[in-house]
């Protein structure tokens, strides 16, 4: 039964598609940074940088009063008044640092820059430093976790008030990072060795993601408040059921799993890998969009 006082957050707060894309880009960049620690290839660094830049642009463009941002930052800095209780503030700081750390890595991969401007040589030293790359990977994982806690902290939307979301975001972000590596391999931008560790790991993550998605829905449906339950119903049998079953699970998990199994038993096929990685990336996006759009407030009754 639909409660009398039912309001979708997207209608009132307008956290819609642009935030879903933002969360998607942060997932790719965040867990992509962890993957970078292992593979250290330039094309991956470019993808991470692009994802971060687009993600940050999206989030700034989503601000209703973006033109007031410089003034807001100025007031915060001159008063030394920072609300570190806010995941949004923590996250934006993390993403800004992450963007600069990625920029240094990107520069290190551009010999025409480092050769022409010798003083940029330190970026190559950073890119060769295990310590720097460990910090970089940790910051990436942290940014992905942040993007989960960002919505978990929104107390008005009970569907989101669960620690499963950051976990789900990390798992699906890892799926996205592996899908990016597979795509880079398909387009000949990285060698087969880089891609080879992805198939089995990707399948394992797909299974974990399936469990986490079903667990998230089960907990909300069985033990959640009325608002959480209604949001989960929107995802399982309501307005966003097609996005959940078709997009998140069908396209995002089952297709990559099937192609992964084929790859293990029959052999690697670039066209199939292309389908698998695009499907996995689409599934990661659908997951974020469905969870966001299904957010409703707790219905109030007398």
């Amino acid at each position: 039964m639909t409660p009398a006082d039912l309001h979708y957050q997207v209608d009132v707060a307008h956290w819609g598609w642009s935030i879903a894309w933002f969360l998607w880009f942060v997932g790719i960049a965040g867990m992509g940074s962890v993957a970078y620690y292992f593979v250290r290839r330039a094309p991956l660094a470019y993808v991470i940088f692009g994802s971060l830049a687009i993600g940050l642009l999206l989030v700034v463009s989503h601000l209703g009063r973006w033109w007031n941002l410089p003034r807001v930052l100025w007031i915060m800095v001159i008063n030394l008044d920072f609300n570190f209780n806010s995941w949004m503030l923590i996250g934006i700081m993390m993403l800004s640092v992450h963007l600069f750390m990625t920029l240094f890595i990107v520069i290190a991969h551009l010999p025409f820059l480092t050769n022409r401007f010798g003083w940029l040589g330190w970026t190559k030293a950073l890119n060769a430093s295990n310590l720097y790359l460990v910090l970089y990977a940790a910051l990436g994982a942290g940014a992905t976790v942040y993007s989960g806690f960002l919505i978990t902290q929104a107390a008005g939307v009970p569907l989101w008030n669960t620690s499963l979301i950051p976990v789900l975001w990390v798992i699906s972000g890892s799926v996205a990072a592996i899908a990016v590596l597979e795509l880079l391999y398909v387009f000949g931008l990285v060698d087969a060795r880089v891609s080879s560790f992805g198939v089995r790991l990707g399948m394992g993550l797909d299974v974990l993601k399936l469990l986490a998605v079903l667990g998230f829905l089960h907990v909300a449906l069985s033990f959640g408040s009325a608002g959480a339950r209604f949001g989960a119903e929107l995802m399982t049998s309501g307005e966003y059921a097609l996005m959940t079953w078709g997009g998140v699970i069908g396209i995002g998990i089952l297709i990559p799993l099937a192609i992964g199994a084929y790859t293990i038993f029959v052999g690697k096929s670039k066209p199939l890998l292309l389908v698998s990685s695009v499907a996995a990336l689409a599934g990661v996006f659908f997951l974020r969009a469905a969870v966001l759009l299904a957010g409703v407030w707790e219905p109030l009754v007398l």
Partner: peptide
């Protein structure tokens, strides 16, 4: 003066 319109307070 300090609001950038992120809507976090709304959610």
């Amino acid at each position: 003066a300090r609001c950038a319109g992120c809507s976090y307070c709304v959610t």
